[in-house]
Every structure is written in structure tokens, then in C-alpha cells.
Design a binder for these strands. Structure first.
Lengths: 222, 222
DNA sequence: GGATAATGATAGTATTACTATTATATTTGT
DNA sequence: ACAAATATAATAGTAATACTATCATTATCC
């Protein structure tokens, strides 16, 4: 993908001070990605992050309410980036089957290179989405956070791809469930391939997560 | 399901003292289920649990190393119970298609009644599996815990159902991935139906999670 | 009835997840 | 260039969490 000047817009309710507005803010975000990967979300603290970036705990608290909100910020960034790729790469392609293939590629394939659009390492962010993002949603605060619109980007992605499915087969009954279970399942399968390889069927050389879901989706809707 | 005298065997490495061996132990397990549901796993502490059961923190620590291990114990119990149901209900059924349907029913349908075999409320335990069980597996300790065999029951379930699939269609390439993604996807979709209903396609009266996955699996393997 | 084991009561520690205060830089407007 | 505003650093403090340790008190078991 070529280098572009684009901005990923994140809901201002997710931060106290926009981390994009200062060098320190960008450092908080970029270094948190390394640290969460290294320590896991449970082991990650603002104190450790402040030490890593040579700042203080209280300064980080001026940007983010707490570490949960920071993780939510990162996941929103990720899904906004995925949505951008989705729109960009399916643009001007008339065949809905072709568009669906591209979409499945985007949501199920591993991120292998960091495009360095931003101060954000996309490869490591993807790894956080795989290993830590369920912790954002599985809390007692989901409904409150959902009302605030923090999950709308994710829902938009599901809706966009569902629309392609309905275009291909208007009679298919479960487009949303098919896509949300593909998105989340693909992340889950990547985690499994890292930790429970016996549950992964990868005989052939191809990326089995991608081919499994492509096969699954096209068989389901045809 | 009829009342039976059966024991669910849990790896002794999961506890310091077997909670099944005393009334207090059973109380710890049974009441933890209510409290985790009420507070969420993050809000749940041994201190609060000890207060609820009229005991002390240190006593609970004599049974379980920490709250993570207790949750792991609960999930192992749940999957052992599911495996038991799987074996029992598919027994003596010759048609693999029929057995697959039964298996899909067991892994995707909601638990609506508490059979009271035990001191464990299965309806609430299922809710914990839906809302909290990802937290057991998505930690930095997965590999270590996997080596200790804490996830073998889950893997056995996947293998059992995969075997049925191979019996139906020996050429299907992704039996393990299909089943693990169905098991986890069904839990995920139940959570979504509780918190993100717009992503659930339930036009007809039937249980859409069950019918979605039945449709999906049979189309994938045929 | 004495030994053994289980539980209760209490105390203590390091860490976490913050909040508050003040001092020192840095930026900005004029 | 200089005052005013703002951002950050340094430090301290608090309540809660996740434990560990000790010792007294009850049950139970041979």
C-alpha cells in the first residue's frame, strides 16, 4: 500500500487530551503498543509506560483516563484503519464476489509489514488485537461504552461486508453473524495457531485461516 | 436429562485442596459463580467471596492459588460437563449426520435449566463461560498452562466432533478449525445478542445462533 | 482423649490505580 | 522580548488488591 496523508479519526471521548496533538502523546500511544505486547495487558501499567518513555504517571493520566481506555483507543484506531483499507481497496470494483474476496483478505490475513504511515506499528497493533482486544469488550461497562458509540466503527465494517453478501445473495439469512463471526474467528484462529497448533488444519502451504474462511463464507451464501 | 450419579474429574493441579472434599470447598465454588456473574471477573475478589460465604480470605487461598485459577477450574468443569453430555447423547446413534446435529445442539444452544446435579448452577456457569472465559486463555501464561494439560478437555471436544465431520466427509480440509470456531463463535454470538443486538440476524422465531451454525457447518462440509 | 488437620482472626507487605500539589519548563500572544 | 498561559516533571499520598504469615480455635479421627 502506498504512502498517503490520511488521518484516522478517533472519538474525542476516548481521551482527555488528544495524543495526536503532541509528540509526547504520540510517544504514549506508540510505546504502549510495544509494552502491552511485551507484558500483556494485565502486566501493563501507566507507571511502567511512563518509565519507558521517560515521563511520569500523572502526565499519562492527563491523556487517558486509565489503561482500559487506552486499549479501547488502540482498538478503535485499528478498526478505523481496517475500515479505511476496506473502502480504499474495494473502490471501483464492480463484481461483488471480487469485493467480498478482498474484504475477506483484509479481515483474515495477517499483517506482516508495518507501513509506517504513522507512529503506530501496525504489525504489533494487530498482535494486540489478536491477544488483548477481547478484554475491551468483555467488561461490565460494554453497554455504557456501546451507547457512547465506541464500537460503531466495528459495526460499520460488519455492515459494509454484510451489504456485499446481500448483493450476492439477497436470500441469505445471516449476513451479520457470518461476518462478525469471521472477523472474530479469524483473530481467534490466529491466537490458536500461536498457542494451540493442534487445533489448526494447515496441511497445504497456503494461509489456512484465510482459505478456511473464504471457503466457509462462499459455501454459506451460495 | 435425567439425574445421574456422576463425577466431573478436574486436574488436581488446579487446586491446592480439592473443593469437592468439603462443604466449605463446594460453597466457595458455588458462590463464586454467583459473585463472578454479579461483579464481573475484574470486580470479583477473594475478599468479597469470603465475606459472602462467611469465611476468610486466607481460607479460600488454601483451596485456590488465585482467582485466575478458580476461573480456570470453573471452565474446566464446564467443558468436562459438555464432554460428558456429548458422549452420553450421541451414544448408540449410528448416523454421523444425526450425531453432528446433536453435537451442534450441545455446543451452540443456550443452557436454560439448571439440572442441579451438583452444587453448581449450570445456567449461570454458562453465562460465565460466555462473558468471562476468554480471560482464562488470553494471558501470558497460556503456554505454561497448556503444557500442564488444562485445555485438554476442550481439545478433546474439538477432536470428537472433528471425527464426526471426517466420518461424513473425509475430504473436508478444516474440521478442527470449523469446530473450534463454531464453539467459540457460538459463545461470542450469545454475548453479541446480549450487548450488540444489531449484529444478530434473528428474523424467524428459532434460535438463530443454533440455526446459523447448523446451516454453516453442513454447507461447509457437504 | 490426645493428635492432627481445618478454619478463623488478625496483621502485614508490595503493588496497583489512581488524585493532589507544587515546581519547572515550554509555548504563545502581543 | 516578555508576560501569561499551558504542559510537564517531581513528589507525595490514598484506598484497594493480591497476596503471605502467624497464631488461636475448632472440628475430626484413631
Amino acid at each position: 500500500m502506498e504512502r498517503l496523508f490520511l488521518n484516522i479519526a478517533i472519538s474525542p471521548e476516548l481521551y482527555l487530551k488528544d495524543p495526536e496533538s503532541s509528540e509526547l502523546g504520540k510517544k504514549i500511544v506508540s510505546q504502549s503498543i510495544y509494552l502491552i505486547n511485551e507484558l500483556g495487558f494485565e502486566g501493563f501499567t501507566f507507571k511502567k509506560l511512563s518509565k519507558k518513555i521517560g515521563s511520569t504517571e500523572s502526565t499519562i493520566y492527563r491523556y487517558f483516563e486509565n489503561k482500559h481506555t487506552l486499549l479501547l483507543y488502540l482498538t478503535c484506531w485499528y478498526w478505523s484503519w481496517v475500515e479505511y483499507k476496506l473502502v480504499f481497496e474495494t473502490h471501483n470494483i464492480s463484481s461483488p464476489e471480487e469485493r467480498l474476496k478482498i474484504a475477506l483478505n483484509i479481515i483474515t490475513m495477517p499483517i506482516t509489514e508495518d507501513n509506517s504511515f504513522f507512529h503506530i506499528n501496525e504489525v504489533l497493533l494487530h498482535q494486540i488485537i489478536i491477544s488483548e482486544s477481547t478484554k475491551v469488550i468483555y467488561t461490565k461497562e460494554v453497554d455504557k461504552e456501546n451507547e457512547k458509540g465506541f464500537y460503531t466503527v466495528y459495526k460499520q465494517i460488519v455492515n459494509r461486508i454484510s451489504d456485499i453478501i446481500i448483493e450476492i445473495n439477497p436470500d441469505y439469512n445471516y449476513p451479520h453473524m457470518l461476518i462478525s463471526s469471521t472477523i472474530d474467528g479469524a483473530l481467534h484462529q490466529r491466537y490458536f495457531s500461536q498457542h494451540f497448533p493442534s487445533l489448526i488444519d494447515d496441511k497445504n502451504g497456503k494461509d489456512c485461516v484465510f482459505s478456511f474462511y473464504t471457503d466457509l463464507v462462499f459455501n454459506a451464501i451460495k
